[in-house]
Design a protein around this nucleic acid. Sequence first.
DNA 1: TCGCGGCAATTGTGATCACAAAATGCGCGG
DNA 2: CCGCGCATTTTGTGATCACAATTGCCGCGA
Lengths: 240, 240
Amino acid sequence: MVVVSLESLSGGVLNEAKIHDQVYEALSEALIQGQIPPLKPVSLRTLAQNLGVSPMPVREAVRRLIAEKALELQPSNKRLRVPDLTEKRLMQLMKARQWVEPELAFLATPSVTRDVIRRLREDDQAVMSALAKGDVSAYMQANQDFHFSIYKLADADLFYNMARTLWLQVGPFMRVVFGRMGTVHLPKDHHQDMIRALEEGDAEAVRSSMAADIHEGMELMLEAIKAQVAPEPKRRRRGG
Amino acid sequence: MVVVSLESLSGGVLNEAKIHDQVYEALSEALIQGQIPPLKPVSLRTLAQNLGVSPMPVREAVRRLIAEKALELQPSNKRLRVPDLTEKRLMQLMKARQWVEPELAFLATPSVTRDVIRRLREDDQAVMSALAKGDVSAYMQANQDFHFSIYKLADADLFYNMARTLWLQVGPFMRVVFGRMGTVHLPKDHHQDMIRALEEGDAEAVRSSMAADIHEGMELMLEAIKAQVAPEPKRRRRGG
DNA sequence: TCGCGGCAATTGTGATCACAAAATGCGCGG
DNA sequence: CCGCGCATTTTGTGATCACAATTGCCGCGA
């Protein structure tokens, strides 16, 4: 099973990018989409083999991801894996997301054009469609597209990268939660309100609806993680 | 001129750490302390030679720092250097610092003990002393100690690392600004108020005094960078 | 004196090899 | 049948080599 691939994003024309950047992008996407479950151990050589490159560029990409807390090295020092989410950690991620992402949406508001609105409507449509079909993967992809289409407009690199780093950390767990409870119980999206506020150029309204959107999603994960504390202390996870 | 060293932090007893971690710590410290000026090009092999290690662990440490935006790779793709600070970027750093660090201080408040207060008084004393002597290096070191002594208590890894990352990006420029205008004009520290609020356990007061402290310092840098926009478009920097 | 062309040195990148430590699998003993 | 210890395998880490591209420098020419 190859959860990450290189060709998919090198696209074909984009040939100048460094290999380790491509590996990083591939791994990032896989993590944000939750294609790599928490605690899943990954190895440099295995990844390298799957991607058809030498372990070296994988090492560099992984080093970046470790710096972003998207991956971790066990204290034992010999095992690379996706970190687990403690309740404390999730609380911090929630607070951080509730600060940066509304801020990004706020900053993006003045740059919204008719064309952007149209694309957001498409993304939102894809979100609804995915929910209807119960397709978790499609939902996560469309939701990511929707959010980052907005964030990109903010022209605020630092905040943008912070948001991306936060998604990297939340992604793997989000997939687990949604996969467990199905897409049915997913929070009603505030996307409609957000689009309306964006159209009207009401930056404050955009900010608050984004905050609400994130709040609901994260609250869901928080409940899920609380419920998951006790269960089986030992669990063998294989495949996915 | 060796601005980074390994022995200084390996201390002697800390022997289990990986080399690339030591290199990372050394470079981090150098950056936060502003010992590496903006736009200063650094090279893997040179650093490795100075540190007495092979280029490999340096490469990994540098990759982490690039991920944290503490270093950058020129678009030309062949030159590693400390990024410059645009006004836009500094604004974002200011906003981010004004959010995380007061939050960290807020969270730290309940964990404050008499022992902590004593150490903070020592740090603040060192800050005042450095200011009196006009010793920029000592000031930055003491100021860092003061702030992170508090942040450490918050028991919030994510926020703590965010703060550290922000300091990594601000450090080099802070040194330039302070070095240019001297330590005389440095903002009156809000450290006294902060210590008092910490003693009284008034978390909200701690948060606001931390916000004020950061606000003044960053405002100073903002003015400095605005004034620096026009000057010489070309400047040769050598030594340091 | 200044501009520019070309060469040498240095740079980051990627691959490969070597090594110690931890994880895994297996078989023995209970 | 289950637990434990040992040997093999796999892991991350560090060093070294090779390479193409860029940088920086030197000298030539106007």
